[in-house]
Design a protein around this nucleic acid. Structure first.
Length: 501
RNA sequence: GGUCCUGUGGCCGAGUGGCUAGGCAAAGCUCUGCAAAAGCUUCUACAGCGGUUCGAAUCCGCUCGGGACCUCCA
C-alpha cells in the first residue's frame, strides 16, 4: 500500500506523513466558539476532520484527537477592547455566561451526533484551562516576547519576527502585514500594530474574569489552543487542523506563542479545510447567509425545496475534496441524495451476496478480466485516500463498481464470475469505507420487525393478485405504498423488494 | 495594495503531461402486464490568447472573470 500523503499548509505542498511517535498520531482541531448555533459551514470542517480521524484509525494509528470548545475569551470586536462574546450574549439574554456555553455546547454535540461524527478523545474547554494559559503567558513574558500594559499582556510581534518569520504559515512578510493594518490610535496601549493580547484586563462590566499575576482578567483567544494542545499533545505534535479562515490570524499567532514559549515549532503538519459557500459567497455568521443544520433537516430554510437528511449532507460533502470550496444548492443536494441512494442500495445488495465456494466449472468460470477490474477499483480506495484524503475519487471508484454489483443481483453476471477472495475483499472494503471511514449509515432503520412483517404480508397479497392477473389489486397496493413513500419493486427473479424514500 | 486559491460538458464536481473520472439531468435501447429499479449505449468538456513539448485541462507568460484571507467567523 502507498504511503499517506497530505497537503501541509506550511510548505504548500503534499508531504509524506510521518508521525513523531511510531504508530501514534496527535491531532488538534480548533473547535467551535459556543456563543451561538453552529451553522453548516462549521459542520463541514468538523466532518472533514472526522473523516481524517477515522481514516487514521482505519490505517492502524492510535490517535489522540483533541478538539476544543471555546467558551471564554473570544472577543466580539476587532480590537482588544471589546467585550467577550459570551458576556455580550449573556447580558443580551439575561443569562449566566455559562448557561450560554452549556446551551450551545449541548446543541453542538447533538448536531455532531446527527452527522454521525465521532467524539474527539479529548474535548477541553478554555475556562477549564485558565491556569495553563496564565502560566504560558507568564513564560512568554519571561522569555521576553510579551509585555504588560495596565493589566493586559501583549505579544510583541515585531520582536518575535526578528528571530522567527511571523507570517510563515500564510507566506506573508511582516512589512506586508503591517501595510494592511490601520495606524495605532491615541487610545491604543500596545506597542506594535500587529501585537495581540495573551491576557486581557477585565473591567467591572465583564461577567467572566479570573485573577492573574496582572490583575483580574480573561484570556485572549489564541492562547487557549496553544496551552491546551501543549498540555495534551506536547510541545510538538503531528497535525493541527481548522478552517482556512483561521490560518492567517489564529494559527499564525498560535505558532508564534508556542515558539516564543517553548522554542520549538509546535506543529508538523497544518491541515486547513476550505469554506462552504452559498451562491459562491462564503457562509458565515457575519454575512447572515448561514444555514442551520435544523433548517436543512426540516427543509424550513427559504432557499431549500425540501428536507435533506444528515447522511445526505455528509455524502454531499464527501463528493468534494476538503480543500476545495463547496457550493451549497438545492440541485447539488438533490443530485447527492439520489447518488447516495443508488450507492447505498448497491452496498446492501453486495452485503447479501454469499461467496460461492463451488469449484469453477465450464459454466461458472471466473471472469479474469472482470475479477481484475474489481480488484483494481477496490485497491484504488486506499490509494486515493492516501493521496490527501481524496474522498471524491474513492466514491468514483465505488460508483464504477455499482453496475457490477447490480448485474450480479440481476443475474446478468454470476457470482462465480468473481473469485471468492475478490468478492470477500469487495464486501469488506465497502463496509470499511462506507461505514467506518466515511461514517455513513442507513438512513431508514427498516429493521422494525413488525413493519417488516406487514410489508411481507402486502408483498404476498400482491404476488397472489399478480398470479391471478388481478392488476387492479396489485397496482393499488403498489400505488398506495408509493404515496406513503415506500417504493415496491419487482425483481427480475420474480421476487419483490422495497425501499423507503 | 499585499498573500493565495480558482475558472472543467445542461448542473455539481475529480483530475499526478499521453490512458473513459464520477454523480445528477437528458435521449435511445433491453427487461417488464404496467411502473419503478436495474443493465447497455449516446452527449467527450476543460475562460481567452500566446509559449514550452513528439504530446497540455494538467507546465510557463499575458489578458479577462470569480473567490478567500490581510478585521470577529470552521
Amino acid at each position: 500500500m502507498s504511503e499517506l500523503k497530505l497537503y501541509n499548509t506550511l510548505s504548500r505542498q503534499k508531504e509524506i506523513f510521518e508521525p513523531i511517535v511510531k504508530n501514534h498520531v496527535g491531532i488538534y482541531v480548533c473547535g467551535p466558539t459556543v456563543y451561538s448555533d453552529v451553522h453548516l459551514g462549521n459542520c463541514r470542517t468538523f466532518i472533514s476532520f472526522d473523516i481524517i480521524y477515522r481514516y487514521l484509525k482505519y490505517i492502524g494509528y492510535k490517535v489522540r484527537y483533541v478538539r476544543n470548545i471555546t467558551d471564554a475569551g473570544h472577543l466580539e470586536g476587532d480590537r482588544d477592547e471589546g467585550d467577550d462574546k459570551f458576556s455580550k450574549k449573556a447580558r443580551l439574554e439575561q443569562l449566566e455566561p455559562m448557561e450560554i456555553v452549556q446551551r450551545y455546547t449541548v446543541g453542538f454535540h447533538k448536531v455532531m451526533d446527527l452527522f454521525n461524527t465521532l467524539p474527539p478523545t479529548i474535548e477541553p474547554t478554555a475556562t477549564g484551562h485558565i491556569t495553563e494559559q496564565i502560566r504560558m503567558a507568564q513564560q512568554i513574558i519571561d522569555n521576553g516576547y510579551a509585555y504588560v500594559v495596565g493589566g493586559t499582556v501583549y505579544f510583541d510581534v515585531e520582536k518575535y519576527n526578528k528571530e522567527k518569520p511571523y507570517g510563515i504559515l500564510t507566506n506573508r512578510k511582516l512589512e506586508d502585514l503591517l501595510e494592511g493594518t490601520r495606524e495605532l490610535g491615541g487610545q491604543d496601549e500596545k506597542k506594535g500594530r500587529l501585537d495581540f493580547a495573551l491576557w486581557i484586563k477585565a473591567g467591572p462590566e465583564h461577567l467572566m474574569q479570573w485573577p492573574s499575576p496582572w490583575g483580574m482578567g480573561f484570556p485572549g483567544w489564541h492562547i487557549e489552543c496553544s496551552a491546551m494542545s501543549e498540555k495534551y499533545l506536547g510541545k510538538q505534535f503531528d497535525i493541527h487542523g481548522g478552517g482556512m479562515d483561521l490560518a492567517a490570524t489564529h494559527h499564525t499567532n498560535e505558532i508564534a506563542q508556542s515558539q516564543a514559549c517553548y522554542h520549538v515549532s509546535p506543529v508538523r503538519y497544518w491541515i486547513h479545510t476550505n469554506m462552504l459557500t452559498v451562491n459562491g459567497v462564503r457562509m458565515s455568521k457575519s454575512a447572515g447567509n448561514g444555514f442551520l443544520p435544523e433548517e436543512l433537516f426540516s427543509g424550513s430554510h427559504p432557499l431549500l425545496d425540501k428536507a435533506y437528511s444528515p447522511m445526505n449532507v455528509r455524502f454531499f460533502m464527501l463528493q468534494t475534496h476538503y480543500r476545495s470550496t463547496l457550493d451549497f444548492s438545492n440541485e447539488a443536494l438533490q443530485a447527492a441524495e439520489k447518488g447516495l441512494k443508488r450507492l447505498w442500495e448497491a452496498y446492501e445488495t453486495l452485503t447479501g451476496f454469499v461467496p460461492d465456494n463451488v469449484q469453477p466449472s465450464a459454466n461458472n468460470m471466473i471472469d479474469t478480466g472482470l475479477d481484475e477490474k474489481v480488484r483494481k477499483l477496490v485497491g484504488e480506495f486506499d490509494e486515493n485516500m492516501n493521496d490527501d484524503f481524496n474522498t471524491a475519487k474513492v466514491l468514483a471508484s465505488m460508483f464504477e463498481l455499482v453496475p457490477v454489483i447490480n448485474s450480479i443481483k440481476d443475474k446478468t453476471i454470476t457470482v462465480t464470475s468473481l473469485s471468492t477472495d475478490t468478492l470477500t475483499l469487495m464486501q469488506a472494503k465497502f463496509k470499511s469505507y462506507l461505514e467506518d471511514v466515511f461514517g455513513l449509515k442507513a438512513v431508514n432503520e427498516a429493521d422494525n420487525a413488525k413493519l417488516q412483517g406487514v410489508m411481507q404480508l402486502l408483498i404476498d397479497i400482491r404476488k397472489e393478485a399478480k398470479g391471478k392477473k388481478d392488476f387492479v389489486t396489485s397496482d393499488k397496493i403498489r400505488n398506495q405504498l408509493t404515496a406513503l413513500g415506500i417504493a415496491l419493486k419487482d425483481e427480475k427473479d420474480g421476487g419483490m423488494s422495497y425501499s423507503f424514500d
